[in-house]
């Protein structure tokens, strides 16, 4: 009722107008974007760059050396170039994260969307699935899967997907429930649009921003999860490298060669931070748009 009018008044005063592009924190956002793009480009095209060597090439002359002009991130136990390892390992880590997120969004998002839109028995089943999977201790489940099957890339990805699906399903379901309550959804029904068309034309576009924001956050979480697995020796086995395995390996001789842990960890940290930041900012930006409507 007049609540809306009063809110409009408060809003008019608070005035965060749409299109207020000049947010002071925006440069952090762009820094995060630039960092991510850089990491992606280097990990994908790294092999063709002169700065990246064979990550497994041993070199007796350069064992456990600190960072230098030749080896930006120093060298590892058998003289391998840590920078090259980070680049190549990043490819696996990021691939695991990307696939995990894609499957999470694809399967979890669809489940959440259907549950939130159709309610009733669909919702009951999806909620059951979500609750059951979420109540199993995540790390234990993953350890179990990887332990009984094998530590191939497929099973690591599979394990990570099991983590991502229920989490994303729950978020998408909540967002769908909220959007489906909006009157424009009713309005489409009144016009005579079919249910499926309402789902795709009215609901999905408004759930999308939440999905995309959480995709970024999930990618970050999976990167960390994969590193934890590596750290426990449960991720992809050598000679395949991931960011986690590089750090895990460096840990053994941490006193001598802190750069082996520290520099890859910084890369991992900045990447996850960037993902979180971008996800957060997107969420916030869409929220502001909604509330300023």
């Amino acid at each position: 009722m007049s609540n809306a009018a009063a809110m409009a008044e408060a809003e008019a005063v608070k005035a965060v107008p749409v299109g207020g592009r000049k947010e002071p924190r925006n440069y952090i956002f762009w820094f995060a974007v630039v960092w991510l793009v850089l990491v992606l480009l280097i990990t994908i095209f790294g092999e063709w760059l002169p700065i990246v060597d064979d990550p497994n090439e041993r070199n007796a002359d350069t064992i456990k050396k600190g960072p230098s002009w030749d080896n930006w991130f120093g060298t590892a136990t058998f003289g391998q170039d840590v920078f090259s390892r980070v680049v190549v390992g990043g490819r696996i880590s990021l691939r695991v994260a990307a696939i995990g997120t894609a499957v999470g969004i694809g399967v979890g998002g669809t489940l959440g969307l259907l549950a939130g839109f159709y309610r009733g028995w669909v919702d009951s089943i999806v909620r059951l699935i979500i609750n059951v999977t979420l109540s199993i201790p995540a790390l234990l489940l993953v350890i179990f899967i990887v332990a009984v099957r094998d530590q191939s890339l497929f099973w690591v990805v599979f394990a990570v997907c099991i983590l991502a699906i229920p989490a994303l399903a729950r978020i998408v379901r909540a967002s769908t429930l909220q959007v489906a309550e909006r009157e424009y959804v009713k309005a489409a029904e009144v016009v005579g649009a079919k249910r499926l068309s309402i789902l795709f034309r009215e609901v999905l576009p408004n759930v999308m921003p939440t999905m995309i924001s959480f995709a970024f956050l999930t990618t970050g979480i999976i990167l960390v999860a994969e590193s934890s697995l590596s750290f426990l020796g449960l991720s992809v086995e050598a000679p395949t490298i991931t960011w986690g395995s590089i750090i895990a390996e460096g840990r053994i001789s941490f006193q001598e060669t802190p750069h082996m842990v520290f520099l890859p960890a910084v890369v991992l940290f900045l990447t996850v931070l960037s993902l979180n930041f971008i996800g957060d900012q997107l969420l916030k930006r869409y929220d502001i748009r909604e509330s300023a409507l």
């Binding site: 009722m1 809306a4 909006r182 009157e183 424009y184 009713k186 309005a187 489409a188 029904e189 009144v190 016009v191 005579g192 009215e202 576009p205 408004n206 748009r289 909604e290 409507l293």
Partner: peptide
């Protein structure tokens, strides 16, 4: 449905923002 249409209370929530 086309014969009986409806106008809602909340002018903002009744239009799809996207």
């Amino acid at each position: 449905r086309p014969d009986v249409q409806m106008i809602f209370q909340d002018p903002i929530s009744s239009l799809n923002p996207r």
